[in-house]
Amino acid sequence: MIKIKNLHANVEGTEILKGIDLEVNPGEIHAIMGPNGSGKSTLANVLAGHESYEVTEGEIIFENKNIVEMAPDERAREGLFLAFQYPIEIPGVSNSVFLKTAINEIRKHKGEEEISAKDFLALIREKAEVLGMDSSLISRSVNQGFSGGEKKRNEILQLLTLNPKLAILDETDSGLDIDALKIVAHGVNKFKNDNNAVILVTHYQRLLDYIIPDFVHVLYKGKIVKSGDKNLALELEERGYDWIIKEQPQAV
């Protein structure tokens, strides 16, 4: 699905990612954990192609194509989805116009026909129901006036309707109460099948009680310093990150 090789990236001249290697295969869920400032969100944004981040070295092979030079909208059409940590408000642009445009762009890319208004509505209704959302939100402006929890749910609604190959969830659990967390997890589990993959970027183990990862990686100072299975997350929950940091030769 995606193969990240020796990825280095800068923000405003400072190197944040210092050689990431990661391979995610169809059907897998990977969790990326790490203390604040370790580069987790940077990794998510670099994969999605944010222009503030400059890739200085390495490759990102997504579905057999190196996407490092690809524009963010092209990546999205190829099937890469990022659920934002802070979903942006876009005043005046309704969710329906926004989502329908996105669906049709992706369909066009695949050589499919545009979705009809009727099918679109049916699709939204179906997916909104999974998340216990009121489908009236479709006529509201994108994320505007949404509570934190609503914004996150809206991200998952987009995930379900766009149905990408790879979903990257950037701290989707942050700021959610336990009920909202369960709903979001339910949505992600609904999405998941043998042909797609999920990368969960998270600070806390909590989300992993509901979305069971196949692999857990610890990111520290721009590098993956430890990988394991779901038990690693539990261990981190119990012992914190210090013990891993201490294992690092360069740690101060």
Binding site: A48, G49, H50, E51, S52, A71, P72, D73, R75, A76, R77, F81, L82, F84, P87, I88, I90, P91, G92, V93, V97, F98, L99, T101, A102, E105, I106, H109, S141, Q158, L162
Partner: peptide, 30 residues
């Protein structure tokens, strides 16, 4: 026109040109 807004729309597969039109039309909607 917010770069973050454009990136968000890009990430959903919408080209920059369309993203700008969308944001501008949203801005003028009232």
């Amino acid at each position: 026109v917010g770069e973050d807004q454009i990136f968000y729309l890009n990430q959903r597969g919408i080209s920059t040109e369309d993203a700008v039109n969308m944001i501008v039309n949203g801005f003028c909607k009232e």
